[in-house]
Simulated assay, not measured.
Amino acid sequence: MSRQEFRVLGMSCGHCVQFVTEELEVLPGVESVTVDLPAELVTVVSSPTLEPAAVRTAVEAAGYELADQP
């Protein structure tokens, strides 16, 4: 299992969390998605490790922006 954290910009409410979670949960191999709304932090547990491009596409499909990773 892989645990990855992503910063998602633009989320401000429970509906935002729902949209992002739903888009990420359908990616192949995703086991769970947890969102810390105040921190704009999304944690994804998956097997195998997700490609950043796939995560970016899912987040953008939900209507939000994936922050550049350090």
Rank of each mutant, 00 (worst) to 15 (best):
M1D: 00
S2L: 06
S2K: 05
R3E: 13
R3S: 06
Q4T: 08
Q4N: 04
Q4Y: 00
E5I: 08
F6M: 06
F6E: 08
F6T: 03
F6A: 01
F6H: 03
R7T: 14
R7M: 04
R7Q: 14
R7N: 01
V8H: 02
V8E: 06
V8T: 10
L9G: 06
G10L: 13
G10T: 02
M11R: 02
S12L: 02
C13H: 08
C13F: 04
C13N: 05
G14N: 15
G14M: 10
G14P: 09
G14A: 09
G14E: 11
H15Q: 12
H15A: 09
C16I: 01
V17T: 15
V17I: 13
V17Y: 11
Q18P: 01
Q18A: 10
Q18Y: 10
V20E: 10
V20Q: 12
V20T: 07
E22M: 13
E23L: 15
E23S: 12
E23R: 15
E23N: 14
L24N: 08
L24E: 12
L24P: 02
E25P: 06
E25V: 10
L27F: 15
L27Q: 06
P28D: 14
V30E: 01
V30T: 09
V30Y: 11
E31I: 02
E31Y: 11
S32E: 06
S32V: 00
T34G: 03
V35W: 07
V35M: 07
D36L: 10
D36H: 12
L37R: 10
L37P: 00
P38D: 00
A39Y: 13
A39N: 15
A39K: 14
A39F: 13
A39D: 12
E40M: 03
L41M: 03
V42R: 01
V42M: 00
T43G: 05
T43Q: 08
T43D: 06
V44S: 01
V45R: 04
V45E: 07
S46Q: 01
S47N: 12
P48K: 07
L50K: 03
L50Y: 08
L50A: 01
E51R: 14
P52S: 05
P52C: 06
V55T: 02
V55L: 14
V55K: 08
V55E: 14
R56E: 14
R56L: 13
R56Q: 14
R56D: 13
T57W: 13
T57N: 11
T57V: 11
A58K: 00
V59S: 02
V59D: 06
V59T: 03
A61C: 13
A62N: 11
A67Q: 08
A67L: 09
A67C: 06
A67E: 08
D68T: 11
D68S: 07
Q69C: 06
Q69L: 12
Q69Y: 14
